[in-house]
Design a protein around this nucleic acid. Structure first.
Lengths: 344, 344
DNA sequence: ACGGATATTGCATTCGTATGCAAAAAAGGT
DNA sequence: ACCTTTTTTGCATACGAATGCAATATCCGT
């Protein structure tokens, strides 16, 4: 039952060569000091017979490279993040790296022990998403020379790389769409005050309103969860006369927007977009389904992932590489949740 | 910039004790041979000052335990799997383990190299979900003494642990619900023939039909993707007279069922459940949203995850533990997508 | 104070692979 | 054929922590 693992020494013995030869044969990088075709042949044959696989742990120990990247997420309910994780993993694997996933349920977020775990596993880099990391985590990691890239979040600290969409610009686009359609009482359903995404999107939204001389009608927090979102939506519309309730709603992400639409239509019996126009953010696949046809601000998720990986590997491969903040453009995707411009 | 990492030897020197003492102080398991309070104190102080963290890689090498579990997924689009991954990670972390995630896009599934990766990382166990693993992978891993637990899939090979819902029973429940409601032309929209889940659910569905003397009206494959699902749904209903098309649809999972409902209502202009009743499988959160109100067969995902982890750790901790197939009961959740029983 | 039992501590080795260095072999030049 | 240059090869050591064993210190009873 308990098989002793096969080591490079076993292979060496079987092939009648030195352990170094085996190591060199399996070296992933075209080693400067190669092995002759003849030896390589012998080694490979012996390895195959024994079922030898190099031990990545031992290799990491000596090379000081684990080829493991820590990936921090706090939840995957929001399909945007599920998709991001999927793409991130693919990208990592394509580069010969692997993702060690840390799920931080916001409730029991034991930051300290998580940081400790990350550090102990000697990850070569760290990708964080949907997580407001305490500056503590950042400092600890960067101090130890572990590159950190934040996905879809920013932090004031300029020592950290981050990749985001232009959330402020995106917020403006949302406001513009609603204003252009002739909406007059605009409400925003924000996420959670602590998240830069939510703050920036709302900021952009308000900025555009201000620029147009309009005023925000109402606001509430959905805290990125469906329950609070439904609650807030009800508060906006329930038992209110048409003239006293919003006629437009900007929801800080699609995940919440979909839920809001549901409450608006099925619980409150209002029509979208006739009674209320809705704009979301992200452009998750559900938004495109005809049932919702949600007009939304698209985040270019593929490019975001690519940029994150590029930044991360630049820093992994060149420790002198400077942290950078990449901001990609947002784009409005018009579907059917915003009413058509009322002709003047 | 380039900080040399702090080792137990550094701490030992600073604290004026031996490296062994440091190792023992940081040993996670209450070591038989402890250290005195005095030394522990000195060590901890020195460690804190230097910012020492034990190196998990080095530890793994000597203990032959990586405390890393490989987790294989093929996609996260289906929220059921996203949720499963989330729960799995939490469970792993709660036990002091971590998930090394392998995403196998079905298209570019390079099984061989993935197996190789898994083996090289010396994972203590392997959890696979939404993946039909070639027997090759199984054999390779079990031969090397790596416990494998399949989540939501089965394989003929009895040497493998698996956790599933009673898919056959679940399929029967779906048929029963539809038949009891008086539906007469039942269609099933399957996933992909290669997946045991899909096969078993369809099998159960047909078995119940057969037992009741009913016959399957039609079937198609949605291949677990939204495009094929929409396509198949159109084929079922488009340009057909009411009497020539299905009046009930069992979709093999909710992810696809939601898409099917969308096509039925928004593209084809049919009503649910008046024109067609729909039953899904899984009970993802979207199914509960009023917009859909999908009647579905619930998989007890929490218990599935718990069982998977239990099985996995039984085998990790006791190499004599036998593989086991845990099958949990399925349960029908009635909402509004199946028409009410027509009174006789 | 002494013998023996017990709890601490440190030494030395081990895990499996990579790599600098020197020795050996092969290739190249005249 | 001889000397130089280049390529192969193996030896020995390093990576960082865990642990069996022996040495030392501590405790206890009398």
């Amino acid at each position: 039952m308990k098989k002793r693992r096969v080591t490079s020494t076993d292979v060496a013995r079987k092939a009648g060569v030195s352990q170094s030869a085996v190591s060199r044969t399996f070296s992933p990088w075209p080693t400067q000091s190669g092995v002759s075709a003849e030896i390589r042949e012998k080694v490979l044959r012996a390895a195959k017979e024994l079922g030898y696989q190099p031990n990545a742990i031992a290799r990491s120990l000596i090379t000081q490279r684990s080829r493991i990247v820590g990936v921090l997420f706090s939840y995957l309910d929001n399909p945007f993040y599920a998709r991001a994780l999927e793409l991130l993993c693919h990208g990592l694997q394509a580069r010969g790296y692997h993702a060690l996933v840390f799920m931080m349920s916001d409730t029991l977020q034991d930051i300290d022990s998580t940081v400790s775990d990350i550090l102990q596993y000697q990850v070569d880099g760290l990708l964080t998403a949907s997580v407001e990391l305490s500056s503590k985590l950042c400092i600890e990691c960067t101090e130890r020379g572990i590159p950190v890239v934040m996905f879809n979040r920013t932090q004031d600290d300029p020592g950290l790389s981050a990749v985001t969409t232009d959330n402020i610009g995106g917020g403006r686009l949302a406001a513009k769409a609603l204003l252009d359609a002739g909406c007059e009482r605009l409400a925003v359903l924000a996420g959670w005050e602590g998240a830069s995404t939510s703050r920036d999107r709302e900021f952009g939204f308000r900025a555009e309103l201000h620029a147009r001389g309009a005023e925000l009608f109402e606001r509430a927090n959905g805290n990125f969860n469906l329950e609070d979102t439904a609650q807030a939506t009800r508060a906006f519309f329930k038992d209110r006369n048409p003239a006293e309730r919003p006629d437009a709603l900007f929801v800080i992400n699609d995940y919440m927007a979909i839920r809001a639409m549901d409450v608006i239509r099925n619980e409150l019996g209002l029509r979208i977009p006739e009674d209320v126009s809705v704009v979301g953010f992200d452009d998750i696949s559900t938004a495109a389904q005809p049932t919702y046809g949600l007009t939304t601000v698209r985040q270019p998720i593929n490019r975001m992932v690519e940029a994150s990986l590029r930044l991360l590997f630049e820093q992994i491969e060149d420790s002198a590489a400077q942290p950078e903040h990449v901001m990609l453009g947002a784009q409005l995707v018009e579907r059917h949740s915003v009413r058509r411009k009322s002709s003047p």
